[in-house]
Design a protein around this nucleic acid. Structure first.
Length: 273
DNA sequence: ACCCAGGAAATTC
DNA sequence: GAATTTCATGGG
């Protein structure tokens, strides 16, 4: 399948910028990954995006899924212009990776992934997530596994997660899975709650603090005004934007956050000393 | 051996 | 209550 007239989107900038952990760059520059129970390879050529390998027979519905997942119907060019006018360094960061978009990931997958992310590094997060899917997900196609549901994981104990080597995070994963599975936490209701209520709802899960809650809101529930502050972002804000607070960036602060996060990680020398 | 990693809970002061 | 320590695992 092909989607035409793609602008302001780059596979690597969007899929390998720390918001999702299941996309793997292939030798030919394409990206292989799984979302919504569909295993595909994404490849951009000029302004065309090729999506191969989806088994869905309903092409229109399938294409709609990927348009939505990749957030292709939001005008990022316009948003980037607005953000760039707010601050010269944000302009620099946005120019550096103008193809970043905020994915519409499955909320449970985002929540679980960012629980795993705490006090951890990205390569290892990817390894744990991969083993989690391989052990407890469904094999959709050859060697491609879906993300396990909250219901599936909620029936397990932390000891059952031993093979994925998540360490102390195992009991957090199970607590989150149980609360989502039994309705204690309703992610779709949280989607439309005001930001502070939504955050404290998510923080009812053991192992979810402000940062993991904000990542879940931004990357899983598409709350674009959320501005997660991790160690990188705190350093970036104090060094690059000492006079600015996150609210300054407004309703699309989360997109600004992602430009700044990616820019900072690609320029660690800015923070030497 | 030592330090850090897209933090948060548990403990101590 | 605020500051510090611990948590499990792997890589540099």
């Amino acid at each position: 399948m092909t989607i035409e007239n793609i602008i302001d989107f780059d596979c690597e900038q969007t899929l390998d910028c720390g918001q999702a952990f299941r996309w793997v760059k292939q030798g030919d520059g394409s990206f292989r990954g799984i979302a919504g129970g569909k295993a595909v390879v994404l490849r951009k050529d000029g302004d065309k995006l090729m999506i191969d390998g989806s088994g869905d027979t309903d092409k229109d519905k399938d294409k709609e899924f990927w348009r939505h997942y990749l957030d292709l119907d939001l005008d990022y060019g316009n948003i980037r212009t607005t953000l760039s006018q707010m601050h010269p360094i944000l302009n620099e960061a946005a120019q550096f990776a103008p193809g970043i978009r905020i994915l519409n990931q499955d909320p449970w997958e985002a929540l679980c992934s960012f629980i795993i992310s705490q006090n951890n590094n990205i390569p290892r997060i990817k390894g744990i997530v991969e083993r989690l899917c391989r052990e407890f997900g469904e094999e959709i196609s050859e060697e491609c596994f879906s993300f396990p549901t909250a219901e599936t994981l909620g029936r397990l104990t932390p000891e059952d997660l031993q093979p994925i080597r998540a360490g102390f995070r195992a009991r957090y994963i199970i607590d989150g899975a149980r609360k989502v599975a039994d309705g204690t936490i309703d992610l779709e209701k949280i989607r439309t709650m005001d930001i502070n209520t939504a955050r404290s709802e998510l923080m009812k899960i053991t192992g979810v603090g402000v940062k993991v809650a904000d990542c879940t809101l931004l990357y899983g529930l598409h709350r674009l005004d959320c501005f997660p502050l991790d160690v990188w972002m705190k350093r970036a804000m104090s060094t690059l934007f000492p006079e600015v607070s996150p609210e300054y960036f407004g309703e699309y602060a989360g997109i600004a956050q992602q430009y700044i996060f990616h820019y900072s990680r690609m320029h660690p020398e800015l923070f030497d000393k």
